[in-house]
């Protein structure tokens, strides 16, 4: 046994991560929620290897439209980061404007996704089958984009509440930063879906 414990960064009160519990908790939530998508994507990768007739998704989906969706989410995320920075320096009116813009970006993304779904359904895609190839293709499309869309929807709700709290001066910089972490996480997941589902 060590004769004397070292009172270093791992000492009590100061976390080994040098972050308050809110940030630590949020990051672990992100890891857990991310693994939910990890499991969906792993299952999709598995189904795709089994399938003999997996459709070429760049033929099924419009790539320019996909680029536009990505641009919207990406811009929304950058606006969120700017909003967090504004909140940190106490520029609350600026923060409110960024947050509002972020929220609108989220709403726009949801609308675009709904339109994409509408197109796919009109073309005959169902949970049980689709006109392009393996039945799992449509199922995984709706499952994965649907779950991501649900997260965007939840993010939009959280952002709306956060914007209202900024407007009524009840928000804290840390609170806005945690909202930001969630919103960036939603974009992070989209990066995986964009590459692994739409492009590969």
């Amino acid at each position: 046994m060590m004769p004397v414990a070292r009172p270093a960064a791992w000492d009590g009160g100061v976390c080994p991560f040098a972050a308050g519990w809110q940030r630590v908790l949020m990051w672990w939530f992100i890891v857990g929620d991310g693994l939910l998508f990890g499991a969906f994507l792993a299952a999709y990768g598995y189904a795709r290897l089994i399938a003999t007739t997996w459709p070429d998704s760049s033929v099924v989906f419009s790539l320019p439209y996909l680029a536009a969706m990505t641009l919207v989410l990406n811009t929304s995320s950058a606006m969120m980061a700017s909003g967090v920075a504004a909140a940190r320096r106490g520029a609350w009116p600026t923060a409110r404007r960024w947050l509002l813009a972020t929220t609108l970006g989220g709403v726009l993304f949801l609308g675009m996704q709904a339109d994409e779904w509408r197109h796919a359904i009109a073309a005959g895609a169902r949970l049980s089958g689709n006109p392009w190839g393996d039945a799992s293709f449509g199922a995984y499309f709706f499952l994965i984009t649907g779950f991501h869309g649900t997260h965007v929807l939840l993010g939009v709700l959280i952002l709306t509440i956060a914007t209202a709290r900024v407007a009524t001066r009840r928000a804290t910089p840390l609170g806005i930063e945690l909202v930001g972490l969630y919103w960036h996480f939603v974009e992070l997941v989209w990066v995986f879906i964009f590459t692994l589902f739409y492009l590969l």
Partner: peptide, 17 residues
């Protein structure tokens, strides 16, 4: 999540890992 965050960030002074 609570247990992880508590152990990481809410320990008493002197309570190293």
């Amino acid at each position: 999540l609570n247990i992880v965050a508590t152990v990481f960030s809410v320990r008493a002074p002197g309570m190293s890992m």
